[in-house]
Computed example of a mutant assay.
Amino acid sequence: MKNLFLLLASSVLLAACGSETATSENSTETTDTLKETYVVGLDETFAPMSFRDSNGEIVGFDVDLAKEIGAIEGIIFEFQPIDWVMKETELNAGNIDLIWNGYTITAERKEKVAFSDAYLQNSQIIVTLSESTIAKKADLADKVVATQQASATLDAMNADETGIVAKFDGGEPILYPTFNDVFNDLESGRSDAIVVDEVLGRYIMKQKGADKFKVLDEDFGDEEYGVGIRKEDTVLQTAINEGLAELKENGKYDEIYAKWFAE
């Protein structure tokens, strides 16, 4: 009877170990396999990277890029507008799977997320109204300057080594939720100058009438855009990098670029 009890106990223990092994294997398989659908978090006012067209559809350079990579990798990307201030929090909480919206690669952000390979160059330009007497960065002293809150633009301004930001009227820039608000502030005369992403700034100026604005020769630095990904999602990161490389090789990237950035 004692031997029978030991035999039964051993069987239960082996079954439990087998179950644990199977669960571990299944977990690994899930982690190492792409899902069918991923949610992309974005700012729906950030033209031409992503914005709503006249039909209310989310369109843009990043949207087209994501769709093409999705077709290559056999996955679907769904686009979800978010509060841009909360982008990393939304990602790491699992509410979205990607930050894909003119998302600048910075050392600070690398501590919170993983990045895809860089896919677009950008700079932080200084824009005034065409009749403004502001001609160089130093002229921003004692002037009202606006930009977007929680943006790479703001980070670049604060990192500027000339110390000009501390000389702004109020000792800091005025912050708005979107770059649309920033441009409206300039046009209304509340701001003397604004600092914006070049890809967005030139697109908006083209829509509003480029002759209304002046872009200074000096800026707040160059940067690169990448896709933000949770650090543990290495398979997704690899898929996006492979997709980007294929689009650049087959010429589709250039087609998408010409569609959104042609003069």
Rank of each mutant, 00 (worst) to 15 (best):
L42V: 07
K231T: 13
A135R: 12
K252C: 02
R202L: 06
S11D: 02
L247K: 00
G221L: 04
Q237K: 15
S50R: 07
S10Y: 10
M157E: 03
L13I: 15
N55P: 05
F5L: 14
M157H: 05
V165K: 01
S151K: 01
A258M: 07
D192S: 04
Q207C: 08
K2I: 13
E187C: 12
T89N: 11
T238L: 11
G209Q: 10
A66I: 03
T133H: 10
I240S: 05
R109A: 15
V113R: 03
K231C: 08
Q121V: 10
I256V: 11
E68Y: 14
A118S: 15
A146G: 14
E198G: 04
E246M: 03
A22Y: 15
Y119Q: 01
V40W: 08
D83W: 07
T133M: 02
E224C: 01
V40C: 11
S24V: 11
T89I: 13
T147I: 04
K136A: 04
E57P: 06
N241W: 03
V215E: 01
G18P: 08
S19A: 15
S151E: 01
V39P: 00
T45Q: 09
G201A: 09
P81Q: 12
P48E: 01
L91S: 06
Q80C: 14
Y103H: 10
D219S: 10
I204G: 08
E218K: 00
A210N: 06
A258F: 06
V196L: 02
P173F: 05
D32N: 15
Y176I: 03
Y253M: 04
V39F: 14
I82K: 06
D64V: 05
T104L: 08
L98A: 09
G201Y: 02
L140Q: 00
L14H: 07
E172H: 13
E25F: 12
S11E: 03
V144A: 15
L129C: 05
D185I: 04
L4Y: 02
I99C: 10
T23M: 13
F261N: 03
L216D: 00
D219N: 14
E218S: 07
F220G: 02
E88K: 09
G74T: 12
N95I: 07
V59E: 00
